[in-house]
């Protein structure tokens, strides 16, 4: 018997659809604190759908199954409440929001979480120091934070900005949806350093990726292959290398 108590995320028989199309078809996944899981798989296998269902984005309908986060039924919670509970989704295509500055977003997000936890708002000086330190880590010029969210940012800057938000918010579960796509090697290094900086016994990470490349920098404990809405194979880091060599064909045929 599995010990549910020790699980951070427990997904059981998850079925989900987008519009009328069933994408996830009975997915099971258990993640303990401290673990890093990589989810790989061909296009259209349901990787992004899984990320979005966990984060609670509208437009994704769960038709069957359960998702427990720290023992709580996640599917009952609004997306903002999930975030306050400690779930962070790093987007594949971060949106630009002119008129809402990065720093405004960060402060609103931090204080929303503190309010959720029954804490007072963060002191302005503490906040700025906290953000400034983390901006340094992902090589973002603090001046850029006064601009609109991702406004005029390059692709790499947007991804680094996602990591900055994650570092600032200190989530318990980090889900990074193809955060490595479109990054040059320097940016990949910065993003990986950010993820590694948050690794710890109380946090877990889900890396959704197409490529082995990211996994050279962020060593996963487990690698899963998602195909046709289910996890069809799980293994250790060596599985990612095998996939890099052989592709997905041999698994899809199975």
């Amino acid at each position: 018997m599995k010990n549910i108590e020790s699980m951070l995320l427990e997904i059981t028989n998850l079925h989900a659809r987008v519009e009328e199309k069933e994408i996830l078809k009975g997915l099971n996944l258990s993640i303990k604190p401290g673990e890093v899981h990589a989810i790989m798989g061909p296009n259209g296998s349901g990787k992004s759908t899984l990320s979005n269902v966990i984060a609670g984005r509208e437009g994704y309908e769960v038709t069957e199954g359960t998702v427990l986060f720290d023992g709580k039924n996640l599917l009952d919670l609004e997306p903002e409440v999930r975030a306050c509970e400690g779930i962070f989704l790093g987007f594949q295509y971060p949106v630009e929001i002119p008129g809402v500055s990065n720093i405004t977003l960060l402060k609103a997000a931090i204080n929303a979480r503190r309010k959720h936890q029954g804490e007072a708002e963060i002191a302005p000086n503490d906040f700025l120091a906290w953000v400034r330190d983390r901006a340094k880590l992902v090589k973002i010029d603090p001046k850029m934070l006064s601009r609109g969210v991702n406004e005029g940012f390059s692709g790499g800057e947007k991804k680094r900005n996602e990591i900055l938000q994650m570092l600032v918010l200190q989530p318990r579960l980090m889900i990074l949806d193809e955060t490595d796509s479109g990054l040059d090697i320097d940016a990949l290094k910065v993003v990986s350093d950010g993820i590694n900086a948050l690794r710890g016994p109380e946090r877990a990470t889900v890396l959704v990726t197409h490529y082995q490349r990211l996994l050279d920098y962020v060593q996963p404990d487990y690698v899963h292959v998602l195909a046709r809405g289910r996890i069809v194979k799980s293994g250790g880091p060596e599985l990612a290398k095998e996939l890099e060599e052989k592709g997905y064909g041999w698994l899809e045929a199975a």
Binding site: E80, A83, F91, A112, Q165
Partner: peptide, 17 residues
């Protein structure tokens, strides 16, 4: 912009805020 709204909510910010 519903996408922007969803993005802000995904960072923990209540819908009306």
């Amino acid at each position: 912009d519903e996408v922007a709204l969803a993005y802000l909510r995904s960072r923990g910010i209540a819908k009306e805020v």
